[in-house]
Design a protein around this nucleic acid. Sequence first.
DNA 1: CTATGTAAACAAC
DNA 2: GTTGTTTACATAG
Length: 766
Amino acid sequence: MKTSPRRPLILKRRRLPLPVQDAPRDTPEEEPKKPPAQEEPSQAQASKEVAESNSCKFPTGIKIINHPTMPNTQVVAIPNNADIQSIITALTAKGKESGSSGPNKFILISYGGASTHPSGRQPQPQTSNDSKRTEVITEILGPKPATRDANVLRPPGPTLGQRLENCAGGDTTGCPLDNSLTNIQWLEKMSSDGLGSCSIKQEMEEKENCHPEQSQVKMEEPSGTSTSWQDSVSQRPPYSYMAMIQFAINSTERKRMTLKDIYTWIEDHFPYFKHIAKPGWKNSIRHNLSLHDMFVRETSANGKVSFWTIHPSANRYLTLDQVFKQQKRPNPELRRNMTIRTELPLGARRKMKPLLPRVSSYLVPIQFPVNQSLVLQPSVKVPLPLAASLMSSELARHSKRVRIAPKVSPGSSWLNVTPFTLPLLPFQLLLADEGIAPLPTAEPVKEEKPLLGEGLLPLLPIQSIKEEETQHGEDMPQLARPIKVESPPLEEWPSPCPSFKEELSHSWEDSSCSPTPRPKKSYSGLKSPARCVSEMLVIKRREKREMSRSRRKQHLQPPCLDEPELVFSEGPSTSRRATEAPLLAEPVSHLSCLQEEGGPFKTPIKETLPNSSTPSKSILPKTPESWRLTPPAKAEGLDFSPVRTPQGAFGSLPDSLGLMDLSTTPLKSIPLFDSPRELLNSEPFDLASDPFSSSSPSDLEVPKPGSPELQVPSLSANRSLTEGLVLDTMNDSLSKILLDISFPGLEEDPLSSDNITWSQFTPELR
DNA sequence: CTATGTAAACAAC
DNA sequence: GTTGTTTACATAG
């Protein structure tokens, strides 16, 4: 079999060092390229800037509204293009002046002022029903490893709201968090200037300027950072195709994308592919899509369009922003890698080497679904373990209301939130610490990689808590919408939890629980992952090897959510369907998850079937391969592999996740976030002190895990989940929150006017 | 050996 | 020509 007749022998393939720049394409071309992406109506309207009363010292467009129910709290709507840092500074000053008697807490929300989407991708016609509402938030992209072309090209403009592009694109309706105020980039910038020397804006510009074409930039930037950015344009991004595909898909609200959109997304975010890479990269993308089981192809209802999605069980909802942020963390090692790569001469550089740097410090961003009404507070007062337990029990009780959505639904409330990873608040850190430390079961650290711990916890399976209602809600009509699936669904999901070492090396499939391979067919429609039993691991492994020959995967995924799924043996509620399974967080599951997380991305490929090695064609019907979750292989390293979330595992509540994540982050990271200058200094992180008790803003919105707050009433269609920041001038803290704001018209920018419905804020805010 | 990248053959549209 | 699937091979770790 080795030699394939059809294929010529290629002894050596070596890519030519470097190509030419495609200069031609750059600048001018892009503009035309973008279709007038349909801008969301809302944005246009949002542009109305009204400077209201209060905003005197603030830039125009800022709206400050007293919170209806919270004393000394004001909501500040900041246009995308505003200089946040300066605003924060001003607010801080204002708060200080007022002291305890005046407004000292500010909820910052960004809104799309005059939004222009720089690069709107043409939206795909078909989908997006709900897209409109996400526009509110503007995406701020900054520090992506690769600058986006569009951004680059765009004149240094608006700092905050750079682009909605993805969101706008096709299915990609919205990327709520990406756009949000709390966008990492944004925060990072703030953090970067401890001295206040640089403005966010500046930094943004820096980055943007990195575009190859704008060489002048280089000069401007004395610091090494700029160079790296620049390089990013011309350098191959340190991500594997698999990772990039995930980023792309996850950048959309519905978590699905057409092949073309994936190409586009990648080109936009990694100019390298647009300008430098050989055309073959697209082939590689396709190859990866087909190869990895985590990528599931769904067909639109009419059967005309194929969307690539990420298997819910495997999807970690990683986004470029998150990952980038992680990378940015001060991690000497990591940096070293990156820089090295960049420094090498092209010829010397290995083509793709370390696409994914494996660094222990590389944390995997956590994404968790946010309950619509749930407000995420970075600083959660409940210790992780406790919270988890509470959640699990509580939630379980209320399973009706809250359930884990195995599948990402389009309009779903899953958001990528990375609050914990941000070195924002001291108290956050404390929290994290608290949560974790006590954790008895706390993640097992691999012997091999002590650091692993960092990554592990965060990796816990993410479950989304979503209200059932929401599913039916208008927001996400699609959920219910049947998509025609051609391929057999994976019915069972391998549980991600194989144990340890073994599984580290395994790939998802290995983990597949079922001892016997099942035919895919039988499970049509089943999306929810089933739990797997670790027992199988060994066996699987063996099988896997045998089959390893073929990397093929094939299947179409049905969109159906309802199918029955497998239960895991250990699983608490076997009968329960994955989707509904409440969060049961079990230590065990966590562990298992951990493992998995640790893994680099393994490709889940091999077929589970023993016989499958055969050439595929014959097997039209999808092979039964179980979909494999990625192997938990090495712990270290950023894991782009899908997370399998065992349902139970899901226990990882957002909070817990966050905590964990934080925990992983060393305190040192804290310093990063300097900005609003004084903030940082004030509350050092003394773990001992309990930030929660007093002033921390956290009181405002922190949902307690077990508390009723989590359960929020169904949301209205017009709601908008927005990320915001809470600036508490009393304790100089800045924390990230998720706000659920409802507004009258979907089409309207909720924040653009005074139409915010306060009542809609989550209970916590009241 | 695994994970990943690359190239290519093919098939179905 | 595009999209998908598979096979084969290269390479780094």
